[in-house]
């Protein structure tokens, strides 16, 4: 009974944070489940589970995606970036300037939304290296933070942009 538990099995090959991985997964596995449960990359958090809070944001081929809504089979042949790989994207530094700036400006409190916020901010700076406050507000509109009140996040993103443009 309950054949809906047993999903079809797929073999996929993909890259996470630069590392090539091939594995066999059930079709109903979501990307956030793959990252957190199968790969133990627990930096990506799951919040609302319905794709609106932004906690679980990752990049697939540099595009911003809510990993709670994305089926893991869809990353076959693609490249995923999570918070664990963020620092390596910047001159092989220990920290990405965004990470440093979020610390300096306390652009986080509980930290639960922070990985998603940082990944979205990276995508923003990739597209727009010198964003205005308004650009930041628009781009980060799908990342909810319940703690900070956001102003420190705006300052942190601007400061990181400045560091990267220097």
């Amino acid at each position: 009974m309950n054949n809906y538990i047993e999903a079809t099995i797929h073999e996929i090959e993909f890259k996470v944070n630069g590392e090539e991985i091939s594995m066999t997964i059930p079709a109903n596995l979501t990307l956030v489940e793959l990252l957190r449960q199968e790969l133990r990359l627990t930096g990506t958090t799951e919040g609302c589970g319905v794709g609106v809070c932004g906690c679980c944001t990752v990049l697939i081929d540099n595009k911003v995606v809510a990993s709670c809504l994305e089926l893991a089979v869809n990353i076959d042949g693609k490249e995923v970036l999570t918070i664990e790989g963020l620092a390596d994207t910047y001159q092989l530094s220990e920290f990405h300037p965004l990470q440093t700036s979020f610390r300096e400006y306390e652009g986080f409190q509980c930290g639960y939304c922070t990985p998603g916020m940082l990944i979205s901010s990276k995508a923003l700076l990739d597209q727009n290296p010198d964003p205005s406050d308004e650009d930041i507000r628009e781009f980060l509109s799908e990342n909810i933070c319940r703690c900070t009140g956001y102003d420190s996040i705006i300052m942190a993103v601007k400061s990181a942009a400045k560091k990267m443009n220097a």
Binding site: R36, G43, F95, F108
Partner: peptide, 19 residues
């Protein structure tokens, strides 16, 4: 002062119960 839990929170290393 920089928050002592800051590094773990900006790198995703921080552990919540589910982690």
């Amino acid at each position: 002062v920089l928050r002592l839990d800051g590094e773990s929170k900006v790198t995703g290393a921080v552990e919540y119960t589910d982690d």
